[in-house]
Structure formats: C-alpha cells, structure tokens
C-alpha cells in the first residue's frame, strides 16, 4: 500500500499563446505549474478544484496526452516524462483514462464491442476468439449484457455509456486509471452506482486511481487522500478525512463551505464563506500566492513571495503564508 506507484515531481505544462505575424510566443498559459505528489499502489488520490484550475490538464499530462513542459513523471521507478510515443506504447497498457463526458467520448460509429476491443487490437494482445470473450467478460463486469456488444453508443443512457467507458479502460488490464470527472454528467442515483462499481473494481483488480472531480463530497467519499488545486498549483494535500475536518488553506476552507448540504437544518446553521470573484486567468499569473486577491487573510507577503508547499505533519501539505 505504501509503495509509490506514481511520483510526480515539479510537473509543468505551459501552453504557448502565439501572437503577431511571425507567430511569436507572446505569453504562456501556465495550466499546471510545478505540481508534485505521489500516488501509492492501490490508493485513490482525489484532485479537486474549480474549472480552469488545471486538474484535467494535470491528469492528461500524466498520461502524456499532453507533452509535459518540464518535470518528472516517475511510474514504477521509470521517468516517462520524456518518452516518445513508441516508448509510451507499453505504458499505455498500464495507464488508462475514463473521460468526463460519456456522450462525447465514445465514437458514435463504432459498436460497443469495437470500442472496448480497440485497445486490445492496438496492442495486439489477443486473437479474435479471446478478444470476443474478453469483451463479453468486461461487459458483464461493468453490469451490461453480452448482447450489448453489437449495439451503438446512442442506444445507451448516460450511466450505461460511462460503464462502457470504464469497460474500455479495463480492456488492457491496466494498473492505474485516471478518472476525469467520471460522474459529473450523471444523475445522483446513477452516480452512486458508478462510484460503487469503481470501488469494487479497485478492490478486485488492485487498481490505483487518480480521481479528478469538482464535487468535493463524492471525492472525499472515494479517495484516501485529496489534493486541492488552484490556478495550476497544488495548494493543499492531505488524508481525505483530515482535509475535511481540518482544512488549512483558506481556499480549501471556502471550497468546503460551498458544498450544498442535503439537510435543511444543517444548511441553515452553516456559515458560508462565499468567495468573491472568479478564478483569475492563468496567463502570466502575478507573482506571489495566486489566491491572494480572493483570500480573506491576504497579507503583504502574499503578493511578494510564493508560499512553499510544506508538510504540516502527518502528510498534510499546504502552500500558504499563514502557516
């Protein structure tokens, strides 16, 4: 459990913004800026933050759908950050992804069987008969019927499509799955079905998850540890119960207080920290702490110096000048 499967060290992903006649790079959009964390074997690490904070880019960079600008991605002891596509092929079997939008992430012109089998074909893992069996097995595993293999995605509901997406990710027997907002497009009752299934799969197959979402209560439920991102930076990382009961960063505190509580009395009692304004642009962000202009506790030092991401004990990391 405590052996790190994945170590992210100072990961950066900058997108150049080109301007003018000669396409000169005028600015950089710093989507992920110096993020470090580890994920242990068999663990679920949650990653939360508002849209635009870089959590999805972070996930996509780890799996190298985006080329990292700088930093290390150490998977099982090997730094894959600079690997070519050819070298990556082997690792793509080990790392898979479940995407956010079950309506857009399945090719409408492929049958469900072909969608799930595509990765098996790419990696030339099995013969036709074995492939067929594997697809049947996977469909049953995610709670669909064997005959669904010959149908097309439009014949399925959102929850069923997300199951197809999960079956596709499982096809090559991965060790590590990045779940990028896998439930945010689903109804509440269906969300619980999918989350339970992800948990079952994890315990049965020994999977490791990076769970990206903006729904804090669901992330807390599924994750062992949770990281909070703000404007390309990891601002806090802790055990999920610890993060919920003792949030240190003012941004985490505000995020937690914004969760709507399905309980009218609790909801009436609760004091909300309503954050003013919105997440600023990540294009050439100002120096210092990136949260300072929305922070209730901002001090002069926050505009001058960038806070260090430091351990407050027990693996509770925070990047804030208050501590």
């Amino acid at each position: 459990m405590n052996k790190p499967l994945l170590e992210i060290k100072n990961l950066k992903k900058y997108f150049p913004i080109k301007k003018g006649l000669f396409n000169k790079t005028a600015h950089y959009l710093k989507a992920v800026d110096n993020v470090s964390f580890t994920i242990n074997k068999g663990e679920t690490l949650g990653l939360v933050g508002e849209s635009g904070c870089g959590k999805t880019t972070c996930g996509r960079t780890i799996i190298k759908l985006y080329e990292p600008t700088d930093g290390q991605i150490i998977y099982d002891g090997v730094d894959i950050a600079k690997f070519s596509d050819k070298q990556m092929l082997e690792y793509r079997k080990k790392m898979q992804m479940i995407f956010q939008d079950p309506y857009a992430s399945l090719d409408p012109r492929m049958t469900v069987g072909d969608i799930i089998g595509e990765a098996i074909d790419v990696h030339k893992l099995m013969g036709p008969k074995e492939r067929e069996e594997r697809i049947q097995y996977l469909l049953n595993r995610v709670g669909l019927n064997s005959e669904h293999a010959s149908r097309y995605p439009h014949e399925f509901s959102g929850g069923q499509r997300q199951r197809i997406g999960i079956a596709r990710a499982l096809a090559v027997q991965p060790e590590f799955i990045i779940c990028d907002e896998p439930i945010s497009a689903l109804d509440v009752s269906i969300q619980a079905q999918v989350v339970n299934m992800l948990e079952d799969l994890q315990s049965d197959l020994g999977l490791t998850y990076l769970f990206i979402a903006h729904d804090l209560s669901m992330v807390k439920h599924i994750s062992n540890r949770v990281g909070v991102m703000y404007l390309g930076k990891l601002v806090e990382l802790a055990d999920s119960n610890e993060l919920y009961t003792k949030p240190l960063h003012p941004y985490t505190q505000a995020l937690l207080s914004a969760i709507p509580i399905p309980d009218p009395d609790e909801s009436a009692k609760k004091k909300r920290i309503v954050l003013e304004g919105e997440i600023p642009s990540p294009i050439d962000p100002p120096p210092g702490c990136r949260f300072k202009n929305r922070c209730r506790y901002a001090k002069p030092i926050c505009s001058e110096q960038e806070p260090v991401f430091k351990d407050m004990g027990g693996g509770h990391f925070v990047a804030c000048h208050l501590y």
């Binding site: 509901s157 009752s189 969300q191 619980a192 079905q193 339970n196 209560s217 669901m218 807390k220 009961t245």
Partner: peptide
C-alpha cells in the same frame, strides 16, 4: 429515500458504501 441515500454525507468519517438506486 433512495435519493437521500445516494449522496455521500461528507460528515461521515468512516467510509460507508453508497446505496444507489439500482436499475434505470
């Protein structure tokens, strides 16, 4: 009941399985 039970309660510190509403 099903709706109320299918959302996790963030106050729970002991991990508990969610109770989804099965079916469609």
């Amino acid at each position: 009941w099903g709706l109320l039970n299918s959302v996790p309660n963030p106050k729970n510190l002991v991990k508990e399985r969610l109770k989804p509403i099965d079916g469609q």
